[in-house]
Write a protein that binds this DNA or RNA. Structure first.
Lengths: 150, 150
DNA sequence: CGCCATTGCGCAATAT
DNA sequence: CATATTGCGCAATGGC
């Protein structure tokens, strides 16, 4: 009883899914019904073509309105879900890349070590040649008159 | 005139910044004032302690309420901004990791090539030895009966 | 008990 | 004209 998502604001999630999915805010007993589509001068006064039709009010009771709202609500949900998906994918991508990075670093470490070994062999051999030491048969391993490290 | 952010829903952004920052929904002329804090049985009926106080209604006109709302609105904005920041950071992280990946792959390629060269040198030298080629000036054991590779 | 932080949700303006 | 996105405020809830 402690790790649940914020749960829909009581309405709709409960049995009160009557009609007012928009129960929030000051409504609950809507009186106005008709509200100006855009209060305060929106700049250009209503497109001349729509003048003699519905001035500029929306009927919050019309089926048209409710249907539009519902559709938009669905679209919103969908969009937000998609958004969250993408965010998660991005997170996964990060982890994926981090893993690959570690893999590559490990490989580099290995290759570097191998190279180091081979180079050392070369150096040793070069020294042997320079010090006049025959290859097969005789081998004074680390008993060389060599004094330098490296 | 085509790349502007959704601009606040007309109210508040315009000159109508009266009080109703919550202008949305069916309000605009709020009549109820007092609304049940949680419609439909929320399960357990109100904490016994609050019974004789304010039952369970919120006064949408009280300064208390408005202040709480305003504070929450700020918190919400802040939280959302933070969220977006984090999302962007994550995207940057992806690019960062991708770059690093390329860098590492290039390094691997280089190291691999170096290794390849050194190994070839070794092979060549081994062949020289096998083919009866003495290093400084000594007689070889007349070629080794060695045939195993590696 | 309160405060801030998060989160799901619906609305409206906009973008596509 | 329809859907997709986005900023915003509300309310429930998480967490300190």
């Amino acid at each position: 009883m402690s790790k649940t998502s914020p749960q829909p604001p009581s309405a709709e999630a409960n049995g009160v899914s009557v009609i007012y999915t928009q129960a929030h805010s000051s409504g609950l007993q809507q009186v106005p019904q008709l509200v100006p589509v855009s209060p305060a001068g929106g700049g250009k006064a209503v497109p001349p073509s729509r003048q003699g039709k519905k001035s500029s009010f929306v009927d919050r009771n019309s089926d048209e309105y409710r249907q539009r709202r519902e559709r938009n609500n669905m679209a919103v949900k969908k969009s937000r879900l998609k958004s969250k998906q993408k965010a998660q994918d991005t997170l996964q991508r990060v982890n994926q890349l981090k893993e690959e990075n570690e893999r590559l670093e490990a490989k580099i470490k290995l290759l570097t070590k191998e190279l180091s070994v081979l180079k050392d062999l070369f150096l040793e051999h070069a020294h042997n040649l320079a010090d006049n030491v025959q290859p097969v048969g005789t081998e004074p391993p680390t008993a060389n008159p060599d004094s330098s490290g490296q």
